[in-house]
Amino acid sequence: MKPVWLIYRREMGAYLRSPLGYIVIAVVLLIDGLLFNAFALGSDTARKSSEVLKQFFYFSSGTTMVASLFLSMRLLAEERSQGTLNLLFGSPVRDYQIVLGKYLSALTFLGGLTLLTMYMPALILVHGKITFGQIAAGYLGLLLLGSAGLAIGIFGSALTKSQLVAIIISAAILVGLILSWLLALITDRPINELFTWLSIHNKHFQPFMTGLINTQDVVFYGSLTYFFLFLATRVLEARRWSD
């Protein structure tokens, strides 16, 4: 596991030394703050605090998904375009270790970024009545959703040298998974059940917003993350021998 740690450490350094990481942090915090102010706090009608918190997690899930794609688009595409993948491929490092090291660094960064939004639930907690359980469940949901987004992003990044093409591919997959509930509405059983199950947000994220942690949702995000990281590893292996 030493190579995973080395790659993880280098990638964390790259996030902290390059402007991209800070730009993503700034934009996510700005958008989350504006949406929180406009929709969660700005409503004239009286609402329960738990409803306000639910709404916070709803729009945070959007910024988390977008951030996960931006944070992962460079991870392998940049290595290929700058020729540094030759260093990793020429070292005693397994392909899954490269993918895992990069995924864990992006997850750590995204996790840190998500934690920076904690001041908003804290404001609700001070001025209203919410449970710590709902906060914890909501953040677990955000982390799992972000983890799946990062895995999809790494898979897109493994496919091409271009970061732009990588993010377009990843975004297309993610949007497909978000909108699969629409396909479920116009298809018959058992196909519609598959589309419902694939619905990354409607089906699997919304319970976390209300404080519910379902095992099947956790398993879904875990499986999706594993599946796309596995695919990214296979793409990397294929590239190693075909280039």
Binding site: R17, S18, Q82, T84, N86
Partner: peptide, 14 residues
């Protein structure tokens, strides 16, 4: 083995 490709594999930010 040590390998120097035609483009040195360098991480610019390091």
């Amino acid at each position: 083995l040590g390998f120097l490709p035609d483009t040195p594999p360098l991480y610019d930010e390091m």
